[in-house]
Design a protein around this nucleic acid. Sequence first.
RNA 1: GCCCCCUUAGCUCAGUGGACCAGAGCGGGUGCCUUCUAAGCACUAGGUCGCAGGUUCGAAUCCUGCAGGGGGCGCCA
Length: 505
Amino acid sequence: MPAVLVERAQNPAHGDYSVTLPLKLARTLHRPPMAIATELSTAMALAPSLGRVALAAPGFINITLEPAWLQAQLAPIAEAGERWGRSDVGQRTRVQVEFVSSNPTGPMLFSHARGAVVGDVVARVLDAAGFRVQREYYINDKGRQVRLFGESIAARLQDLPVPEGGYSGSYIDEIAREAATKGLTAEPTALAEFGMTWVQQRITADLSRLSVRHDNFFSESSLYTGWDQDTMRKLRDLGRIEEKDGAIWFKTDGEKNEVLIKRDGYPTYFWSDILYHRDKFLKRGFDRVVDVWGADHQGQVGRVKEALTVLGIDPARLSVLLVQLVSVKRGEETVRMSRRAGVGISLKEMLDEVGPDAVRYFFLLRSADAQMEFDVELARRQSSENPVYYAQYAHARLANVLKLGGEVVGPIALERLSSQWELDLMRVMLRWPDVVRESAEAFEPHRLAFFTDELAAAIHRFYKNCRVVTDDAPLTAARLLLSRAARVTIANALGLMGVSAPDRM
RNA sequence: GCCCCCUUAGCUCAGUGGACCAGAGCGGGUGCCUUCUAAGCACUAGGUCGCAGGUUCGAAUCCUGCAGGGGGCGCCA
């Protein structure tokens, strides 16, 4: 039996909802779909006040909502305010969203910001859908890179050349200078510690400008205070550990095994990943975990899931969102950004140039699994070509009308909200709770942006064709109510995306 | 060689197996400010949904193969 019985009609001419069950059942029941449709539609016994039911060949049941029913939804929406669209489908399931997790050895790059926005909005949407969400930032504060980072600062401090494969850049100079004024000596471990704190503060500041925040910062090194031995023991007991060539290996079910501890004694990222995810599920007891990773980490997904399976954790509880690459277009020039290419445009630079609202909205206009091009010129344009303003302007127009309309007293002629523009706007608005739920279930925040765009279009058309504040008091009251409900909806949509909803522009 | 994304209008991209013309934004063309913000609205032009098969009553959507672009496949991070 198909799970989805009622779906949104694709063509508005066919109504608001449609049921395709008759077509799906025709084969198993060995009966003509129209016959099933007839029987089903009488059994549905839809309340006449809600809508009309119609059959269509070859076996659709179409439902058209009654204007009166649509109109009756407005007051509850306006009343619900920020709660409109929220639900409890998540049933308080504990889910962790881990995102950003940028190394504390350098400034945050713009390419990473896409994952930051995607993760942030996934978390917001899950929260709105009734999940209990923790937003986590994983700090790689251990390993060879950290040592190199410390050594690079030490070298800078002593005017020595940067070590092989080490870090350079003006921020290393700054860190060295500050370390010197704090009286730190050229001792790499302490300098690395100091430097990581310095860098992390700046990353957090950049993220905060982007309206991205985390509940918990999880330190990689905390995994190595016993949890590693515990996990190693467990894997040994399972017969999954092998020592060879001076390294410690994880025995996979496949062709080749994976190194956990390298010959030089440093753990691999794979080992940290195992410890980290075992911690999330076993120690901290999350029901579900969502990791937002760059596409270049794709190779790790299978390995981590295999390790979880071996450790007795259902890998389906882990979802990994691979965020594809961003290239930046400046005029005619396009710069592709990838970690290996090492091309760096910093997040700060981009925030200064185009602002947080545009950065967020542009990222959300693309599905995370598609590579995208970020057009800087378009994003920074303070004009109508910029899609961010389209949505914000719709909100500002309503806010202005509501301010002008003032308090509503006297009768409200709801039934007069009957033009195509008014009814269309109501239909779009009423999709909002479904959009929130679907975005949460699919981990697809871009659905919010596309919905917002459609809603903004419906608002602009309404505004253009239906003057709200007139001498006709009952009609004015009704249109003000519609405006209130619409403003609530678009404000909530922008809010979930972390984009501001200005009252004036 | 193997794995993961992507291929839809000139450009950037939507499109949970459905129903006459396949959608949006930008860009191109044409109209609309005496009335709540023209950062808007209304028209218009533009597409073999990469190619070839298959499944289905029905495919841009699912399966297979091929081609093109990107990213992975390290005792790198």
